[in-house]
Structures are given as structure tokens and as C-alpha cells.
Design a protein around this nucleic acid. Structure first.
Lengths: 204, 204
DNA sequence: GTCTATAGGAGGATAGAC
DNA sequence: GTCTATCCTCCTATAGAC
């Protein structure tokens, strides 16, 4: 192996990696737009600009492709949480919630398959996804517990309910409902959903 | 027409009506369980215990069937709101929110097609559905505005944001997430989601 | 690994007898 | 209106040449 051959392999690998990235990114976007069932592999391939058979060289099934997209999102959340500058737990929770809403409005947040589906089974069996989910839940859970101990969270809510609520708000349809209304900017929409999430619908 | 013939026709009509009811109810349940895309007409027919071709005598397409189920839910909400005993607006809103969560946990609340789908277009073109939606929105909207005037709702939220949030909470995945955890009763789950909805995640 | 072409199968919708 | 049997379209997945 000389350096030229080595560089060539590396370049080739990079090209492949870049293509795979493009596939995953497109899949992620379509997953957010239409959901797993309505998304077709033809559509993903066409958007990337490759033949469907080529896509199947990278991912052995539609479920695999979608799972890769979900893993990508989860890893993105992991690195986001890991690199977050230190702050008070309650502030961290608000920051993270706002970030997920921004992702959602940018069409980069595939909705979690809460409904029974083949994708759901695939994800539960996917070690990378579950590891990411557990890591994210642990980090959020630690902040939640500390914030609870500081008396900053609604005492009627167990930590698990707070965690699930934060996950659900990342996919909140209210964001797109309000955007369809066309009366508010994205920033205003996020402020409103943040307010309803943390302060509640009722007056204080 | 003698009375016997008349009774016979009426009976026959009732049978048809009952079958159509069964079809819609089954479709509604499957719609809640799996969503529109994942639900198959074969499945609905099998669950009702009739042939698929028979189902197509009642509904001319899968979209029509699903739309009928959505209209049914909407009409149910209309009559529920109409028959609600008088109370303070804020109390009404809480009562309605709790009722929708109970429906959701009983598997009788088909999730709204927030994602782009053929069903969505069908519903927007469906007069019965849109009439129901507008009626429900008007009734809730009146309570929301009164509650706002009374200073009982979060002033950071315009009425439309409150309305959309109530709609979204009727389909909140947090309900099923918490149920999957198996740590709480349905009543406790609803109490928690009600608390996070109206009081917010933050302490007061 | 990328392509074209196609197999294979699921599911929406219909034909035609009763 | 209900059935059985079938059509036909769309979509996942693969074969085989380059």
C-alpha cells in the first residue's frame, strides 16, 4: 500500500459516505413530511438523484433506511446535549425543548412512530438507536430530577411524565397548525408553544 | 304502502344502518391504532366480518371510509359539547380536554392527519366534516375568549394557539407512552397530562 | 456500485353470479 | 347487497449487464 492507493481508497470512501449522507438526509426530510408509510423508496432515490437499486446497495430495506435516519437524528441530539454549555438544569431543559421545535419547523424532525408499525419494531431492535435514546433520556432525566429537587418543576408530574412530554413536544403538530395559519413568524410560534409547554394554558 | 311493508323497509334500513355503523366503528378503531396509511380495507372488512366488496357498496373508497369515521368523531364531539351542562368557560375547557383524553385512551380517537395525505384533502373538501370542525371550534373559541377576558388563560397565548393546543392534546402520544410504562392507572395518566397541559411543566 | 429492467406481492377497487 | 374471484396499480426488492 503506497500513499497514493491509500488516498484513493480514502477518497472513494468519502464519496460513498457523502452519498449515504445524502440518502439519509433526504429520507429524514421525507419521513418528517409524510411519515414512514407514505414515503416511498422510489421517491427517496429520485430526490437524491440515484437509481433505486443503488439505494438498496446502501440499505437493505425501507425499514433499514428509515432506521438509519432515526439513528442520525438521535445521534444529533446526543452530540447537541453533550456540547451544550453548562447552565442551570431548568434552563437546559428549555434550551433543548426550543431546539427540538426549531428542528421540527425546519422539517428535520421525523415524527416518532407512536403508532404500531414495522419501523417501530425495527427501532426497538436497533442497538444504536436504543443506546442513543437511553443516553438522551439519561441526560434529560438528570436535569429533570435536579430541577424537581429545586422545586422548579410541576410537583404533580413524575420525572417520566416530564420526559415523555418533552419528547412529544418535539413533534407537536401545533407548530405546523400555527404555521398554516400564517399569522405568526416561526419565532413567535416557538415562543407560544414554549409558553404553553412550560407555563401551561392556564394563567399564573 | 301498508304498515307491514313500511315496517319491513324500516327494519331493512335499520339493518343496513347497523352494518354501516359497525364498519365505521371498526375503521375508527383501526384508524386510531395504526393510522390511515397502515390501515387496510381488507382488515376493516375482516374485522367487521363481511367481504371487502360488500364494504365497497357502502363506501366508494378508502378515503371515503376514513372520512366517514372522522365525521363520526366530529359529530360526537359536537353533540357532546351541545349537551354539556352549563359551567364556567374555563371549567368547560378542562372538562372537554379530559373527555378527549379519555376517548384517546379508549382507542376511539383517530389521530388527525397532520401529515400530508390523501385523507387530509378529502376531509377539507368534506362539508359535513368542515361544518363540524367549525362548529366545535366556535364553541371552544367562545369559551376560550371568555376565559381570556376573565384573565384565566395564559396571556402569552392567542386564542387560536389555545384552540390548536387543545386539539393536539386530544391526540397526545404522551398518553400511550405513559400507559406503556405500566406504572400508572388511566385516571392518573389523564390527571398528569391535564396538569402538564393547563398548569405547564414548570412549577407555579 | 450504478444502472435498466423486472420479479413478486400487497392492497385498492371491480365484475358478475346469487 | 353480499359473496367469490379477479383485475390492476403501485411499491418493495432483486437480477444481471456494465
Amino acid at each position: 500500500m503506497n500513499s497514493t492507493a491509500s488516498a484513493k481508497v480514502s477518497f472513494k470512501t468519502q464519496m460513498l459516505q457523502a452519498r449515504e449522507d445524502a440518502i439519509i438526509q433526504t429520507a429524514s426530510r421525507l419521513l418528517a413530511e409524510k411519515g414512514f408509510e407514505a414515503m416511498t423508496v422510489d421517491e427517496v432515490a429520485a430526490n437524491v438523484g440515484i437509481a433505486k437499486a443503488s439505494l438498496y446497495k446502501h440499505f437493505s430495506s425501507k425499514e433499514d433506511l428509515a432506521a438509519a435516519a432515526m439513528v442520525r437524528v438521535m445521534q444529533r441530539a446526543q452530540s447537541y446535549l453533550r456540547d451544550l454549555p453548562p447552565a442551570a438544569p431548568m434552563a437546559q431543559l428549555r434550551t433543548v425543548a426550543r431546539w427540538t421545535m426549531e428542528l421540527k419547523l425546519r422539517g428535520e424532525m421525523p415524527s416518532l412512530p407512536s403508532q404500531n408499525s414495522t419501523l417501530r419494531a425495527k427501532l426497538i431492535a436497533d442497538a444504536a438507536y436504543m443506546d442513543g435514546l437511553i443516553d438522551v433520556s439519561d441526560r434529560l432525566g438528570a436535569w429533570i430530577q435536579t430541577a424537581q429537587a429545586q422545586g422548579l418543576l410541576n410537583p404533580a408530574l413524575p420525572a417520566i411524565a416530564v420526559l415523555y412530554t418533552l419528547y412529544a413536544r418535539a413533534c407537536d403538530p401545533v407548530l405546523e397548525f400555527l404555521r398554516m395559519g400564517g399569522q405568526h413568524s416561526d419565532a413567535q410560534i416557538i415562543d407560544m408553544v414554549m409558553a404553553s409547554c412550560f407555563e401551561g394554558l392556564g394563567a399564573r
